[in-house]
Amino acid sequence: MRKIHSFAFAALAALSVSLPAMAADKPVLTVYTYESFTAEWGPGPKVKAAFEKTCNCTLNFVSVADGVALLTRLKLEGTSSNADVALGLDTNLVQEARETGLFAEHGIDTAAAKVPGGFSDPVFVPYDYGHFAVVYDTQTIKTPPKSLKELVEGDPSQKIAIEDPRTSTPGLGLLLWVKSVYGDKAPEAWAKLRGRILTVTPGWSEAYGLFTKGEVPMVFSYVTSPAYHVMEEKTDRYQAARFEEGHYIQIEVSGLLKATRQKELAQQFLAFTLSPAFQSIIPTTNWMMPAAATVEPLPEAFGKLVSPSKTFLMSPEEVSRNRQGWIREWLAAMSMN
């Protein structure tokens, strides 16, 4: 790990003191993000090295569990937050984030950003995206569903693990996908799909764990998931199913905090996230698609990924307005006897 810390186990109090590496004369940019971004295998370490080469500053990551925790943390800290930039909110959280009033307009040129479905916002800058997809085990599933309809109406003995929209963003993604395709008929679709659902887990990790353990042959994940298995585990056993109707997308964004005292540096960082240097790091560390041009073409494994014919994305305002009602609808459809 890149960060240097010294743990002082003062008596039994175990009070730890963390000293981020910093030189006194350089400005420090603090970026709040989620944990897997800063993990040793994540983009964090490389991003830090690349940005510090150009900025004559120190880039300091503070990471929390996930995007939702990131927003909660910002709400709790309010205007006294140390964050200059928040990186890792997704499109479904954007509206809520905007409503906190903590973010400022980024004021940078985002023309480089190329995201399916198009995302352009005065406050938030997209840095990567991923289409949701049903990932299946080719050893068990010989004829994967070719559409959401086939998934809903298929053989109930072939099970899928999905995430709970009450506690996870992929779960919410599936909810919105079904809503986008089925509209008012979504409850009926859920009632039918219910027979295929082995279980509904609180988060992505639990569902994917069940999947890789062989307990369930399908899982709700990302189009990019197979790339990880190909590149890191040298296996093409796990594949994403291409759905005819199209795929719902998750776009990850970053934003500038109003209260920052390093506005220029923060803007410089946001612009950097759209540069090829940053974008080239993303695919094989964050296992998401780059939101702008990379230095080299993407690795072969990415070329073989499913490319959706159509992208679903609801506006953040619409999601924010309807989330509670749709979740209630989902609960009713899933709990009916």
């Binding site: 939702v68 925790a69 927003l71 909660t72 709400k75 809520e96 709970d164 009450r166 506690t167 219910r194 659902i197 082995l198 279980t199 509904v200 887990t201 609180p202 639990e206 069940l210 509670q324 989902w330 609960l331 899933m334 709990s335």
Partner: peptide, 28 residues
Amino acid sequence: FTLVLVLGGGPAATTLEVAIYQSLRFDF
């Protein structure tokens, strides 16, 4: 919390703890 959701098979199996987590983490 986790056990109930992972092994419960669906949202019919949900404890109050899930709602507490949801209202603080997701709905703030």
